[in-house]
């Protein structure tokens, strides 16, 4: 009968309206930025290496500066070396922790 011909278009409209609303809501919520994997293994290796090297370098550099300032021989440089190595390891450990927690999205310095 005639009344059976009418509901489908309205139902469909309802569906399309709901879909449009969802899209808009998603847009406003700002669906995460999807891209976080830094080229996987290659990127990870470089990243951790850079992390280690730069932290170690900062430790050594600080030690060297303090040595020159306090005229304390090579001692603070050596201390700086070990502290830098420790800090580097700690950072690498932290990065790996965030990676275990959220695979592919560990982006902490």
């Amino acid at each position: 009968m005639a009344e059976n011909d009418h509901p489908p278009p309205l139902d469909e409209l309802e569906k399309r309206l709901a879909a449009a609303r969802d899209i808009q809501a998603d847009r406003e919520r700002g669906k995460g930025s999807g891209l976080a994997a830094e080229g996987k293994s290659y990127g990870l290796a470089i990243r951790l290496a850079i992390e280690m090297v730069s932290t170690l370098a900062v430790g050594v550099f600080l030690g060297w500066v303090l040595d020159r300032w306090l005229d304390s021989g090579p001692w603070l440089l050596i201390v700086g070396f070990f502290l830098g190595a420790a800090a580097g390891s700690l950072n690498v450990y932290r990065v790996s922790q965030t990676m275990i927690r959220e695979p592919g999205d560990g982006e902490t310095g």
Partner: peptide, 22 residues
Amino acid sequence: KDKIAHDLGAAEAAKKQAEATL
């Protein structure tokens, strides 16, 4: 964003009216 929200509202109102008519 405002326009889309507004249009969605209008579409919804139109749908309501269509339902009432039906």
